[in-house]
Design a protein around this nucleic acid. Structure first.
Length: 470
RNA sequence: GGCGCCGUGGCGGAGUGGCUACGCAGCGGCCUGCAAAGCCGUGUACACCAGUUCGAUUCUGGUCGGCGCCUCCA
């Protein structure tokens, strides 16, 4: 079966056909590093991490490029709010983003280009656009360079809007614009802005407009025509519309597929940087296990809005821990397996091929877990090992295998020092002796004492097992 | 005003012109010394009103409600 993806531009689900057979180039808009990432930002990262893992499973050589926009109005504005130069603030937020990636099990992108490192590529693109008659330097001496939307009849196709219905762009004084909807490719240096935030160009010193960096960088690393361009749905317009216009007007075919993930809302509204930052990844990760957070973020379809609530998050954690519990117990019984030999359930594969239908894929996974639990009741067997391998393979494709080195430490439910192992084992021996002589009061007393110390005891057909909780 | 998305059982969340989503919670049972975990069983769910149809939660139109974008946004 072919992989099918929903393409925002055509508003249909289409068979995926790569530019180059066997390869896929994906570019998704990383962050404008004006602040540390919140749960909404990381939803996007996790979504594209799952996409990337699925393409790799399907045998594609994946090139994943996620940019960092480290210079723009908002970043500069932080300089006056916070103590420190804009570039230090941007860098600190890059580091926070990397910490969030790691915490939530996202594989690093193939490359992570930064806007400030690609000024020459941007200048080149502007020159091409001016030469072709689609951009012009403002005649008010501001040093701004604008994209001429009237010169590009296709402007508006991505967001399905007509130019005449659009409101004026407010990214600069309209004085130098030919049309109020023209957007800035380049912004001339202003007296009150730091000189460090300006670069020389044929049109004077200045800094890039918001959209230019992505067109320049995607062109450099993925080519004039590439496979998939992604990002949050809120980027569809103006950001992606403008990228598309800039690139195609410069003669570059650009993205074949546009993928946009839906927002994560809080209190019924989109989490917005301008409304105030809440639900920082660094904060959520202290209240919930990161692997549970990842499950919560990918369990709904990527094109469905997530209304964040603590209750739903906690419920998702319970749901995932059921799966995780099976993996842990089955691993204890089988002695461990190599997940690479596992085969995903056909229903799982079909669901993932169908525009990354993770909810349906998880339903298949849950059925496999139920089967596994039944097998587990009979102890070790080839069928159990087989099932466990399949379950772990499926989990791995979602970045959720609890035994992946990625998560070790964070989710280790049995790990403790050898001393604790010995002490608990000794107490459990005493309890087993008590049970053997039907002294259940003594046996339960030992279990209660262990429970008070945070050690939970369960009796299984293979004997008692214990885990450290909390 | 323009362009879109969504309203599913107590909760989360898929999907389909007729056939069990799945999970959480609840209830009943099995297993267990007890428990935990697990397994089995268990729900007149598709905002409202019309229309199309043999049949609509699914398609069409309308109403109500919620959300996103229209140059800060993931």
């Amino acid at each position: 079966m072919t992989l099918r993806l929903y393409d925002t531009a055509s508003r249909t689900v289409r068979d995926f056909v790569p530019v180059v057979t066997g390869k896929v180039g994906i570019y998704h808009c990383g962050l404008t590093v004006q602040g540390p990432p919140h749960l909404g930002h990381i939803r996007k990262e996790v979504t594209f991490d799952v996409l990337r893992r699925w393409f790799e499973f399907r045998g594609y050589a994946v090139t994943l490029v996620a940019n960092i926009t480290d210079i723009d109005d908002k970043v500069l504005a932080k300089e006056t709010e916070q103590d420190g130069p804009w570039w230090a603030i941007a860098y600190a937020n890059v580091r926070a983003l990397h910490a969030a990636y790691t915490a939530l099990g996202c594989l690093p992108p193939t490359y992570e280009p930064r806007a400030t490192g690609h000024i020459p590529e941007m200048v080149e693109l502007i020159a091409q656009l001016i030469e072709r008659g689609h951009a012009y330097p403002a005649d008010d001496g501001s040093g701004d360079v604008y994209f001429d939307v009237r010169s590009w009849p296709d402007y508006g196709t991505l967001s399905n809007q007509r130019l005449d219905d659009m409101e004026p762009a407010a990214d600069a004084d309209a004085r130098g614009k030919r049309d109020p909807r023209d957007f800035a490719l380049w912004k001339g240096h202003k007296e009150d802005e730091p000189v460090t935030a300006s670069w020389p160009t044929p049109w004077g010193r200045g800094r890039p407009g918001w959209h230019l960096e992505c067109s320049a960088m995607v062109g450099k690393y993925l080519g004039d025509e590439f496979d998939i361009h992604g990002g949050g749905l809120d980027l569809r317009f103006p950001h992606h519309e403008n990228e598309l216009a800039q690139s195609t007007a410069a003669g570059r075919p650009f993205a074949r597929y546009w993928m946009h993930n839906a927002m994560l809302n809080l209190d019924g509204e989109k989490m917005s940087k301008s409304v105030g930052v809440s639900l920082l990844v660094s904060d959520v990760a202290t209240r919930f296990r990161p692997i549970d957070v990842r499950y919560y973020l990918i369990a709904p379809h990527y094109r469905s809005i997530i209304e964040f609530t603590e209750a739903a998050m906690a419920e998702a954690a319970t749901a995932f821990q059921r799966v995780e519990g099976y993996v842990v117990r089955a691993t204890e019984v089988t002695g461990g397996i190599d997940p690479a030999v596992g085969e995903p359930d056909p229903d799982f594969t079909a669901a993932m091929d169908d525009d990354l239908s993770v909810p349906a894929a998880l339903a298949a996974l849950q059925r496999a877990v139920r089967e596994g639990n039944k097998l587990l009741a009979d102890g070790d067997s080839p069928a159990l090992a087989d099932n466990l391998a399949g379950v772990r393979r499926m989990l791995g494709l979602l970045g959720l295998d609890p035994l992946d080195p990625l998560w070790v430490g964070a989710t280790d439910r049995t790990g403790s020092s050898q001393a604790i192992d010995g002490l608990v084992a000794a107490l459990l021996d005493q309890r087993q002796e008590a049970r053997a002589r039907k002294d259940f009061a003594a046996a339960d007393a030992i279990r209660d004492r262990l429970g008070e110390a945070g050690v939970e005891v369960e009796d299984t057909p293979q004997g008692p097992r214990w885990t450290v909780v909390g």
